[in-house]
Simulated assay, not measured.
Amino acid sequence: MGSATKIALKERVARKDGLIVPGAFNALSARVIADLGYEAVYLTGAGLTNMHYGLPDLGYIGVQEVVQHTACIRDAVELPLIVDIDTGFGNALNVRHTIRQVERAGADAVQIEDQASPKRCGHFSGKQVIGVGEMVGKIKAAVDARSDENFQIIARTDARSTEGFEGAIERAQRYAEAGADILFVEATESDAEVRELTQRLQVPQVMNIVVGGKTPALDGEELARLGFGIVLYANAALQGAVLGMQRSLGELQKRRRLDEDPTLVVPFQERQRLVDKPLFDALEKRYA
């Protein structure tokens, strides 16, 4: 891992062929993503906030929670790992500290956004953005703070809702000039805007598909044809997990028992496989 996963992610995104990256909200969800054969995983700030605290994505997590979960996911999977660091948790100096901490914890890339604090989910109303100059300073601090030049800085702008599409494009261009490796124009609101992004911005880009959100959900093949580097499904796993819990626990409530029904729960042995129980059984015998 280390530089190898950073280089692998950098080269893969540079192909601009719509790499689908699901979001993980903890180590086990990252294991499921890896087990299904995905090529990279994204630690979602919204998912972490929802699942760890049961709170909405309104800026409640901090750097230590992100560092802790980054380390847990890195220990669980060998996939390239992109980490959502929200606004960087403060000014440019805070961003420097955050980058150093998160890179040491095992991230291969980070996503930093230009929202004013406290930030909001990109598909919520009422977002505000900081000045372009302040965000440029944060990006420069992030670039300077990384210890490996292959560590990718993803610069996200949430200005579509406050400054319009043209304003968001202008910001993204400034962020690329400041050193961002990948651009992310959040919450575009029409097919035309989605299609225009890759024509207007030359560095690799993220297209974030939020199930039920503001951005039209073009299929992966179309987004690959358009030339997006990453197609992000940040909280698809979370939404699927919540539905699974509601279904299985709803059935338990109704029937007052729950059997090993594969339409409701994974089998006991499958759960043990995903958490490497056979490995620990073997280690226990080895060290006995």
Rank of each mutant, 00 (worst) to 15 (best):
K254M: 10
L238D: 06
A71L: 14
A172I: 01
F228R: 03
Q202S: 15
R15G: 11
D148T: 10
A24H: 01
D86G: 00
R273W: 14
S147I: 14
L243G: 15
D281Q: 09
V102T: 13
K254C: 12
T188H: 05
K214A: 14
A234G: 13
G250K: 05
G122Y: 07
V242T: 09
V211H: 15
V129G: 04
V67A: 15
Y53P: 01
M207L: 15
A178T: 08
L283P: 02
A46I: 09
M207I: 14
P204K: 02
A178R: 09
Q202V: 08
A224N: 03
A109E: 01
A142R: 04
N26L: 07
G213R: 05
V242Q: 12
G212H: 00
S3C: 04
L28G: 04
V95P: 01
D86H: 05
S147V: 06
T44W: 02
K127S: 04
R286Y: 10
A176P: 09
G164I: 05
L9W: 07
T49V: 01
I182K: 06
V185F: 05
L79Q: 01
R146W: 05
T263G: 14
P56A: 12
Q199L: 12
D219H: 12
G220L: 08
I154S: 06
A224S: 11
A224F: 02
L43K: 02
A8S: 11
D75A: 15
C72H: 14
E186S: 12
E196G: 12
G167I: 05
I139N: 03
A187R: 13
L274P: 06
E177G: 06
E149R: 03
F124Y: 13
G179C: 00
L9A: 09
V194I: 14
R160M: 08
L197R: 00
G179D: 04
I209D: 10
G212S: 10
C72I: 07
P267L: 09
Q202F: 12
Q202E: 13
E65D: 13
V77H: 03
F280L: 07
A172L: 10
R120Q: 14
I230F: 00
R255C: 08
E170Q: 15
A8V: 04
R104C: 05
S3E: 13
R200T: 06
S125D: 15
L249D: 09
A187N: 01
Q115W: 05
R271I: 10
E163P: 01
E170A: 14
G133L: 07
A76T: 04
D75K: 12
D86R: 01
T162K: 10
F228L: 11
D219M: 07
R257Y: 12
Q64D: 13
E270K: 12
E221P: 07
G131C: 03
